[in-house]
Simulated scan of single mutants.
Amino acid sequence: MFFTFLWEVEARHRHQSLLEETVGIGPAVPKVVQEARMMQLAQQAQVSVVENICRVSAYVFVSCAQPKRIVRALSRLPGVVKADALLGASEAVLVVERHNFEALQTLLTEVQSTPGVKKISVKLAA
Rank of each mutant, 00 (worst) to 15 (best):
G116W: 02
V23F: 11
R76V: 10
L41E: 09
L18M: 14
D84Y: 06
V93G: 01
A28W: 09
L87F: 08
N52D: 13
A103E: 15
V93W: 00
K31Q: 11
F61M: 10
E110N: 10
L94F: 11
S48V: 04
R98M: 05
A28P: 03
L108Y: 05
T4A: 04
A58I: 01
P30S: 03
S63Y: 07
E10Q: 14
H15P: 00
T109G: 02
S75M: 11
V71H: 04
P27C: 00
S48Y: 13
S17A: 12
P27M: 04
E102I: 07
S17G: 07
E91W: 06
E97D: 08
S63R: 14
G116I: 02
V111C: 07
G88I: 02
F61R: 08
Q44Y: 07
A11W: 10
R12S: 06
T109N: 07
P27A: 04
A65K: 14
F61T: 13
E51P: 06
S57I: 00
V80R: 07
Q16W: 00
L77M: 13
I120G: 00
D84T: 15
L108P: 04
A65T: 13
V95K: 14
E51C: 10
V60I: 09
G116S: 08
Q112Y: 02
C64I: 01
Q66C: 05
R14M: 07
S63N: 12
V60W: 00
K68Y: 08
A28E: 15
V47T: 09
T114P: 02
L108W: 10
S121T: 03
L74M: 06
G24A: 08
H15K: 14
Q105F: 04
Q34C: 15
L104Y: 01
H15V: 07
R12P: 01
R55M: 07
Q34I: 08
N100P: 08
V23W: 06
L108A: 11
V117K: 00
R14Q: 11
L107Q: 05
S121L: 02
M39Q: 10
D84R: 13
S63D: 11
H13L: 12
S121C: 04
L124P: 03
E8K: 09
V56L: 05
A85S: 15
V60G: 00
V122G: 03
I120M: 00
A42I: 12
E97I: 05
A11Q: 14
G88W: 03
F3V: 06
N52V: 05
F3G: 03
A92Q: 00
A45F: 12
S75P: 06
R12I: 04
A73Y: 02
A83P: 01
L18H: 13
V23K: 07
L6Q: 14
A85P: 11
S48I: 04
A85F: 05
E21G: 03
Q66M: 03
E110L: 12
V96P: 02
R72E: 15
F5Q: 11
R98E: 08
L87G: 12
A89F: 11
V23N: 03
V47N: 08
A73D: 11
V9G: 02
Q40W: 05
S75V: 06
A89G: 11
S90D: 05
N100F: 04
